[in-house]
Simulated assay, not measured.
Amino acid sequence: MTLEASPASGGGTETQSHVFHRRLHDFSESIEHALTALLLVAPGRALPRLFADLTWTQLAVALLLLLIIRPLAGWLALPGTGLRRLDRAVMAIYGAWLNLLPRLCSEPCGVCR
């Protein structure tokens, strides 16, 4: 059994299975967006309670980890990649997102292709 598509949707025919899968995909995307919103809001509601118990020592350790240890570990992990020093520094500080490598590198290299 086929369903006739309306002229507004571009014409053509679609099977019931295709329509069902499209609706199922749209539903799963809606659920994904709702859960993402929940994951963004929930930590925001918890942070004020967490900050109330934060000490200066804990803040210093967190800043040390974020601003020195993490970039240093990234810098030390990248020497065999063939990246220039500036490119290694950017990747060490911001992280190595593979889809952003070509935009971060100043020259195309073996890693970015």
Rank of each mutant, 00 (worst) to 15 (best):
Leu66Val: 06
Phe27Lys: 05
Leu67Trp: 09
Gly44Gln: 07
Thr57Asp: 08
Leu86Gln: 13
Leu67Asp: 03
Leu38Arg: 10
Ile69Tyr: 05
Arg70Val: 11
Pro48Phe: 05
Arg85Ala: 15
Pro71His: 01
Met1Asn: 14
Ala8Tyr: 13
Ile93Asn: 05
Leu54Gln: 09
Gln58Asn: 10
Thr2Gly: 08
Ala8Asp: 15
Ile31Arg: 03
Gly110Phe: 01
Thr13Ala: 14
Thr55Met: 03
Val111Pro: 07
Thr15Asp: 11
Ser30Tyr: 02
Leu100Phe: 08
Leu35Pro: 00
Val111Asn: 02
Cys112Ser: 07
Cys112Leu: 00
Ala89Leu: 10
Leu54Ile: 06
Gly12Arg: 02
Tyr94Gly: 09
Leu24Lys: 04
Met1Pro: 14
Arg49Thr: 14
Leu66His: 09
Ala52Gln: 15
Ala60Tyr: 00
Phe27Thr: 04
Cys109Ala: 04
Cys112Met: 01
Arg45Lys: 09
Gly82Asn: 02
Leu39Thr: 15
Arg49His: 15
Thr13Gly: 04
Ala42Phe: 14
Leu40Phe: 15
Tyr94Lys: 12
Asp53Glu: 14
Phe51Thr: 15
Val19Pro: 00
Arg85Glu: 08
Leu64Cys: 11
Leu100Pro: 01
Pro7Thr: 06
Ala62Gly: 02
Ser30Phe: 01
Arg70Gly: 02
Glu14Asp: 13
Ser106His: 09
Ala77Gln: 05
Trp75Asp: 03
Leu104Gln: 06
Arg84Ala: 10
Leu38Ser: 15
Leu66Cys: 08
His25Asn: 14
Asn99Ser: 12
Thr36Lys: 08
Gly110His: 08
Thr2His: 13
Ala42Pro: 06
Thr13Asn: 11
Leu54His: 04
Thr2Met: 13
Pro71Asn: 03
Arg113Lys: 12
Ala77Met: 12
Arg22Met: 14
His25Trp: 12
Glu29Pro: 00
Leu24Glu: 10
Asp53His: 13
Phe27Gln: 07
Arg70Ser: 05
Leu54Glu: 09
